[in-house]
Design a protein around this nucleic acid. Structure first.
Length: 567
RNA sequence: UGGGGUGUCGACAAGCGGUAAGUCACAGGACUUUGGCUCCUGCAUUCGGAGGUUCGAAUCCUCCCACCCCAGCCA
């Protein structure tokens, strides 16, 4: 076995794995698994589990299986199987030959059930669903034994065989484990092992009309695959005694189940049910809406998989409930994008500027650095002309305190171009809205430096008006206005705190011409604005659509906020 | 009132009997042709609470408190 490849701090699970390796508990093997049910799209909470399971396998020289927990055909679909595989691969993990389906074990699972019956540890129960619930008792009162609990092995065998043969209607009987109806752990009160369910399975078709339950299937699947560490979330801690019971009664290979706390993130929800509600309620455009915390949503939003992986490393793994500030995710995102993404100029809300002393027909190619963080990314030429666009918010007719940008009579630098000074403001006669700025430039400042050493307080991005590319830009913000939507008390529930401003569509943005051929999925930093990527679904050549992945840190915005607060 | 689990800075999270890492956030400052990046500085005399053991406790013991999960023929 190889030693851990990275020097990351060992969380309690890695500590267990390392210790097991040291004591040779599993014969030097490390086998984990990521076991999604194919009934929805993966989200960033799943990424935590994927990174944990595949990460441990990688670090300790083991293997991680991708296993679909497909025991409930009424909810599952191949659409999800495909998206899940795509997402895991996109994150950068490889299960190699280890792609499994719990449904592949149905025959063996059935045989094991027969074994349990023969051992007197399982019985066919005719109680209705409601009756089973009543017999189960409550959290504080013990349950009562089913009147069918004492059936003979022969009768159970016969009945179970006939359940499989389709002799009984859906829901009429179940196979139950015979454990302890008085257990303080509800999961041990004769849990259901098999139910009759006539549903076409996406893989086994109509072969079965009985399907095994999670608790029975999961432990045996782990056992069959030789998993060493079966890592799951905390809510399954109560199920561990049952996991152990099944394997012990059957006397088969017995992996160790270990639980960790699932991820919670501020300003979003991470439950398949709620995510599905957002999709079906039309609150988002789909599972891959860039505002969704799904991996497909984050991908479309422009998140690189490396950023998500890095995030999963940094949040750690522990057992306590936690709520990670989405600001941490965004910080790691910027950290990643800052290093790798080329800079570009794009004006989101254009304001026309005419440089009066600049020749009418002249177009100059200004040399711009592609990424100051990485000189190897080189330079590019960006055309400059008499008419340009700047950002509307970079001009204030009456500049407030600490506003360094353009204002009447004030001089600023146009990035990589010239110093310009605002000499006049043109307004719409009727509305009074500023529609154009008249400026002059200083030819001596070409490239952005003044030979006389004079300084300006601000540098603005700009785009040549005649050479600009028009594009649509979608600005995204947090899906939920409040940090924890799950705490919403409104009768509309978590949806009551959906952020009404989570999406703003800007249609006549002007971008530098180098962006004309930008490919779907490619990422850029629009200088002074944020990181953007070409939408992979709606963007077309000639009709580009960009998604804002995340804004840049904005000190000015914070200054304004503070000023506003002070009054 | 049953069973299981968890409590260390606003948020994550190290620490495992020798005197509270780190990261995000936040607040200052330096630098700056992105109000970006980077860099400095500050930010828990205290570890859910109360007792106890010990020369010494976030770490060990006792009691208490708070929060989370469990009553699907879902996973």
């Amino acid at each position: 076995m190889t030693a851990p490849a990275t020097t990351r701090a060992a969380d309690f699970i890695r500590t267990i794995v390392a210790e097991d390796l040291r004591t040779n508990k599993w014969g030097g093997r490390v086998v984990t698994r990521f076991p999604p049910e194919p009934n929805g799209y993966l989200h960033i909470g799943h990424a935590k589990s994927i990174c944990l399971n595949f990460g441990i396998a990688e670090e300790f020289g083991g293997a991680c299986h991708l296993r679909f927990d497909d025991t409930n055909p009424s909810k599952e679909d191949t659409e999800y199987i495909e998206s899940i595989q795509e997402d895991v691969r996109w994150l950068g993990f490889d299960w190699g030959e280890n792609l499994f389906y719990a449904s592949d074990y149905f025959d063996r699972l059935y045989a094991y059930a027969v074994q349990l019956i023969k051992k007197g540890k399982a019985y066919v129960c005719d109680l209705s669903q409601e009756e089973i619930r009543e017999y189960r008792g409550t959290l504080t009162e013990p349950g009562r034994e089913s009147p069918y609990r004492g059936r003979s092995v022969e009768e159970n065998l016969d009945l179970f065989e006939r359940m499989r043969a389709g002799e009984f209607p859906d829901g009429s009987r179940v196979l139950r484990a015979k454990i302890d109806m008085a257990s303080g752990n509800l999961n041990m009160r004769d849990p259901v092992l098999y139910r009759i369910l006539r549903a076409k399975h996406h893989r086994t078709g109509d072969k079965w009309c009985i399907y095994p339950m999670y608790d029975y299937t999961h432990c045996l699947s782990d056992s069959i695959e030789g998993v060493t560490h079966s890592i799951c979330t905390m809510e399954f801690e109560d199920h561990r005694p049952l996991y152990d019971w099944v394997l012990d009664e059957l006397g088969v290979y017995h992996p160790q189940q270990i639980e960790f706390a699932r991820l919670n993130l501020t300003h979003t929800v991470l439950s398949k049910r709620r995510l599905l509600e957002l999709v079906e309620g039309g609150h988002v455009t789909g599972w891959d809406d860039p505002r969704m915390p799904t991996l497909s949503g984050l991908r479309r939003r422009g998140y690189p998989p490396e950023a998500i992986r890095r995030f999963c490393e940094r949040i750690g793994v522990a057992k306590r409930d936690s709520m990670v500030d989405i600001a941490l995710l965004e910080h790691i995102l910027r950290e990643d994008l800052n290093r790798r993404v080329p800079r570009v100029m794009g004006v989101l809300r254009p304001l026309r500027v005419v440089i009066e002393n600049y020749p009418e027909d002249r177009i100059e190619e200004m040399e711009c650095v592609n990424n100051p963080e990485d000189p190897a990314m080189g330079v590019r030429k960006v055309p400059f002309s008499r008419e340009i666009y700047i950002e509307r918010e970079d001009f204030r007719e009456e500049p407030p305190r600490k506003f360094y940008r353009l204002a009447p009579g004030r001089e600023v630098r146009l990035r990589y171009a010239y110093f310009i000074k605002c000499v006049d403001v043109v307004k719409d006669d009727k509305t009074g809205e500023v529609i154009e700025l008249r400026c002059t430039y200083d030819p001596e400042t070409r490239g952005g430096d003044a030979p006389d050493g004079r300084k300006v307080k601000a540098t603005l991005h700009w785009v040549s008006a005649p050479r600009a590319v028009e594009a649509e830009v979608r600005l995204y913000d947090h899906l939920f206005a409040q940090p924890n939507p799950n705490e919403a008390t409104d009768e509309k529930g978590f949806k009551a705190c959906l952020n009404p401003n989570s999406l703003a569509v800007l249609t006549s943005c002007r971008l530098e011409p180098s962006l004309r051929e930008a490919r779907p999925g490619s990422r850029f930093q629009f200088e002074r604005q944020g990181y953007f990527c070409v939408d992979s679904r709606d963007s077309r050549p000639g009709a580009l659509v960009f998604n804002r992945t995340v804004t840049l840190r904005d000190t000015w915005a914070r200054v304004q906020k503070a000023q506003k607060k002070q009054g």
